[in-house]
């Protein structure tokens, strides 16, 4: 396959690295979760684009259609999306409680507070 044929993978990789970079580089806990989401979405895209069969129709049974795209990855990704939503919600809830407890959601400040805590 020529370059354009692989373009979906390029997009996946770029998205993935973007998300990963955000997770690593951002000190803001919310932004980290955003990065995590981008990262996860890249995987969803990966699954969905992988299952596309050229010329295939949506997998709804009909007599007039010969080729279907593979429906299984879509189903899987539906599950994965739900998991992603749950993760995000939980992450957000944690951030809210961290803010209640520390008064900040910046990682470096939290670390400073924790360091002070461990050396009374």
């Amino acid at each position: 396959m020529a370059f354009p044929g692989l373009i979906n993978y390029w997009i996946v990789v770029i998205l993935m690295m973007t998300g990963f970079y955000i997770v690593i580089s951002q000190g803001n806990l919310i932004k980290k979760i955003v990065g995590l989401n981008v990262f996860q979405v890249s995987v969803f895209v990966f699954y969905i684009s992988m299952s596309k069969v050229f010329g295939g129709a949506a997998p709804i049974l009909d007599d007039s259609i010969e080729t279907y795209s593979n429906p299984l990855p879509h189903v899987l990704i539906l599950t994965a999306i739900v998991v992603g939503v749950a993760t995000t919600a939980l992450g957000m809830a944690l951030v809210v409680r961290i803010r209640d407890a520390y008064g900040t959601i910046e990682e470096d400040e939290i670390q400073r507070l924790e360091a002070e805590e461990s050396e009374p």
């Binding site: 990963f20 979760i33 995590l36 993760t87 992450g91 944690l94 409680r97 961290i98 407890a101 805590e117």
Partner: peptide, 22 residues
């Protein structure tokens, strides 16, 4: 309160791990 940050850190890394797995 450090339980919260510990959980958060685990959440980020754990999600990365699970995503790597899929």
């Amino acid at each position: 309160r450090r339980a919260l940050t510990a959980a958060y850190r685990y959440l980020v890394l754990g999600t990365l791990g699970a995503t790597f797995y899929i």
